[in-house]
């Protein structure tokens, strides 16, 4: 890894990054919920550029493997690259070791990539959800920190969404109840966050299945 040798330009660069981060990570709501038997990811479908709605039907949840999916918030280009890298890396590991990589190992892999770009970060906030031996949900920030969560929300609509989930979350929710909770959380955020809207995508990952839902608003 190359260490910076000019401290001043480093500080200026970090300030620019901060601005970019705030602008890019702002416009979205994504939500993750983990229960005893499955993990759910949900996201809205709006892409904004300043106050302009640049896309009304963007997909923010990407399938990584047949047992793992990731929500992407932030710079679309960075998120797309990382999702592809991760998915190809996991396939490579599976072919060479004959073992399905755990969700945590995927999260740690992303963490290494993100942290190595510490001084010129990928501007992303990722939720990685899946089912290896049990349902898993990880929150990965743009510097590479990884935390395992029961429920989490990211993006500009996250304060609104998290309020709904805090009130409704139980570890033993049924699949229908959990989908409804995730949907309600993102829906509330689309009502009260200008930068979220235009529809809700939901994915449910269980022991041997992965199910997609899409709701128009």
């Amino acid at each position: 890894m190359i260490l910076p040798n000019n401290i001043n330009s480093n500080i200026a660069r970090e300030q620019v990054q901060k601005l970019l981060l705030q602008k890019a990570l702002h416009g979205t709501t994504t939500v993750g919920i983990r229960t005893k038997n499955f993990t759910i990811l949900a996201a809205d479908r709006r892409a904004t550029s300043g106050y302009y709605i640049a896309h009304k039907k963007i997909r923010k949840i990407v399938q990584i493997t047949d047992y793992m999916a990731m929500t992407t918030a932030g710079l679309v280009a960075d998120a797309q690259i990382l999702a592809e890298w991760l998915s190809n890396h996991l396939r490579y590991k599976y072919y060479t070791t004959k073992m399905k990589p755990s969700v945590r190992s995927a999260a740690e892999y992303l963490s290494i990539i993100l942290h190595s770009a510490r001084f010129y970060p990928y501007i992303v906030q990722l939720l990685l959800g899946g089912y290896d031996t049990a349902p898993r949900l990880f929150n990965i920030d743009w510097f590479g920190s990884v935390t395992e969560e029961e429920y989490v929300a990211t993006g500009s609509g996250s304060p609104i969404a998290i309020g709904v989930i805090e009130d409704g979350y139980r570890e033993n929710l049924t699949e229908d109840e959990a989908v409804e909770l995730a949907k309600r959380a993102v829906y509330a955020a689309t009502k009260r966050d200008s930068f979220s809207g235009n529809g809700i995508d939901v994915v449910v990952i269980g022991e041997d299945y992965i199910k997609w839902y899409s709701f128009n608003l």
């Binding site: 416009g27 709006r46 904004t48 106050y51 302009y52 709605i53 009304k56 200008s194 930068f195 809207g197």
Partner: peptide
């Protein structure tokens, strides 16, 4: 409203 976040 469709294309401006501040309107709706």
């Amino acid at each position: 409203i469709e294309r401006d976040v501040m309107s709706g």
